[in-house]
Design a binder for these strands. Structure first.
Lengths: 216, 216, 216, 216
DNA sequence: GATGAATGAGACTTCATTCAT
DNA sequence: CATGAATGAAGTCTCATTCAT
């Protein structure tokens, strides 16, 4: 049954179908995380899965659909973890800390997923047109500035930096799982808290939870 | 006569040999920057260079050596621009600013080189063993801490973040050359100045005087 | 239970078996007529039939048997329409006209069947050994000559020409159903009537009075 | 050097290049003629040529270009033989006879070419849009009618019939080279002479002065 | 009876590399 | 020094067929 021509009947895809697709997606993630996107041929993925190469073609319309599924699955799982925690924060500083913290939490639980997605996005970046759309993160930063909680900076550049830092940590973590993610989270949170907040000399930051106070 | 088995006579590689290699490296850079590493086959490179595909094989042991040469050449050119300016600074803060500024200057003058190297590194990251050696930048940051100029933070993580931010800007600049590099330099310099500097001298952060450590 | 290894019990194939086979044959015909033999994979056929691909394999020993069945079914249906009308004629000229006319009639009523068979024969011609057996049509033409109703010509070549013309009209009709088959029938009938009949007894054709003889 | 990216310099393709392409085209023709278009994979063609499969990809942009080259080569050779002889005739009847005769002459000299082209055209017919353009042959027939030399008939249908007959003879000749082409030429010429000529001047056929028309 | 699932063969294509000239 | 030519490995995808349920 080809995924493309699948007739979604009363029951949709069978349980086995779902399980197989999930398994293949998982193997694809492992393979990409392990040997890199460039080397992750269908052959390699199938080999790791212990299945024939054609099985992938049977459950997915093609390599593209498989990769797309990887992105979708991981993105959804990540968003489900991250955004609720971000939304729960009341201050922009808290939001930023939650954003970083929850990213690294997700990374700890799903290191390969993060690495694989990172690989895929990098490899596709060259081919996909640069997206100049505002990202959710950038929008949050902008909001923090409007609220006067953040100092004046380029939200876009700051967003790029935060994302790049998170991705880099992801890659490093995959390369060396002994990396202390908790410590990395604290460090990143503090670094970007300092970078985004208008610090006011004389006001201390005992717990690094920056206070709002516009200076200059 | 393959480059690898070249017999180094009295004079080493001939002038023509050197010039040819340089030309090929340049063409490789342009091709990779233009169409991405994944699409940059030897065929494509040779075509853009207006030379035969075999010329590359003649002057280089293989594609790997060519790519390695690209990395070497660009890295050397970059280092030649960056480190003198960094060394000229007397304070760690000045050093960091010079590091960022000179990187973006190099980027403006050699966008293709930067783009090509960026592409190559991305595609090879998975295969290259993670280097746990201390990078020069990390060492500088550490020095700034020893001098008491920088606050306490993880030098390694900070170095990662800085490098990641610079790479990200490089990619964005390649994708959209209208990006204002001067502004980006100012922004990044300020962001990392804030992140690295203990703005409230005398007040330490006992709860986070940590380093990103391995193990556990 | 494979069709080939089917155990013919008391009653032979069951009613369901027969019906299923007929349905599959029909779907195969429609698919081949619609998208061409080259594109008509079992997948395509099963999809159009709304059945599983395996059903075909279950009821037929393989694709070959299915295709063979298509040929058989259509040929039988065609023969059932054509030969009675041909037999009903008393003269050879009438027979020829009836042959052509009934072919085009069958074509009008069963355009897909004709198209499918046409496609199949084309694709299998190279593989099937050329049949040097005398065809029924050729035999009829020969009879017309014996009766003195037809002039002297090569019956085999004439039969080839007639069949080729009918096939060509079939293909054209499938490609463009607005083709006027009645008109085509009249035209073909007249053309071959003129070609086969010694129209002016006593008038010789000194410039090309060729005899029919096989072999060089 | 890929055919597509070939830079046509001063001298154009090298002698060897031309020879290799010609050889491959020839092998493609032989293969198609021998085992049919459907079975004529690049593997098969390369095998018969005694070369590697990649050699074909080296000299041709892809299978499509190879097949196109086969069509072009054979069509040009055929046209070069046929049309001068047709043009040399002064009467329409002579033209038609020359058309048939020269086709079979070409067939005798290049049986495989004719068979291959026949196969290719048949296999592509289903995919290519039916051409409703007037063919040169049809135009000639029309001219013969205007001159009053030919009787009234549908030029399009007659052209179809003639072409179909020639193609059929080609296939039969390939299947059985002992076929007497001279006799076939005489037979076909006579058949179509009879079919096209108003053999009884003064006797018109008012009931069938029709053309194969569309619509309805 | 029926079918979802799996599979191996083979198709076309791209690519880095090698070789003879 | 240079290159046209050739090649084999590997990639993605399609397909007819087989098997366990």
């Amino acid at each position: 049954m080809q995924s493309k021509s699948r007739t979604i009947g009363r029951d949709g895809p069978s349980f086995i179908e779902v399980a197989r697709r999930a398994q293949i997606v998982e193997c694809a993630i492992e393979t990409i995380a392990a040997i890199g996107y460039a080397q992750a041929s269908l052959n390699q993925i199938a080999e790791r899965a212990g299945i024939s190469k054609s099985v992938i073609s049977y459950h997915f319309a093609g390599k593209d659909e498989l990769i797309q599924q990887v992105l979708t699955d991981v993105s959804q799982a990540g968003a489900a973890l991250i955004w609720p925690r971000v939304q729960a924060e009341t201050t922009s500083a808290g939001m930023l800390r939650a954003y970083i913290q929850s990213h690294l939490d997700f990374m700890r639980d799903h290191p390969k997923q993060v690495a694989a997605v990172s690989e895929i996005l990098l490899y596709h970046r060259a081919q996909t047109t640069a997206e100049h759309d505002t990202t959710p993160l950038e929008e949050r930063l902008r909001q923090g500035q409007r609220d006067g909680e953040f100092r004046t900076f380029s939200p876009r550049l700051m967003a790029w930096t935060i994302r790049a830092a998170l991705d880099e940590v992801a890659r490093q973590y995959v390369a060396d799982p002994s990396l202390d993610l908790d410590e990395a989270a604290r460090e990143l949170a503090r670094n970007f808290a300092l970078a985004t907040t208008a610090h006011t000399p004389g006001l201390t930051h005992p717990d690094s939870g920056c206070q709002v106070s516009r200076g200059g």
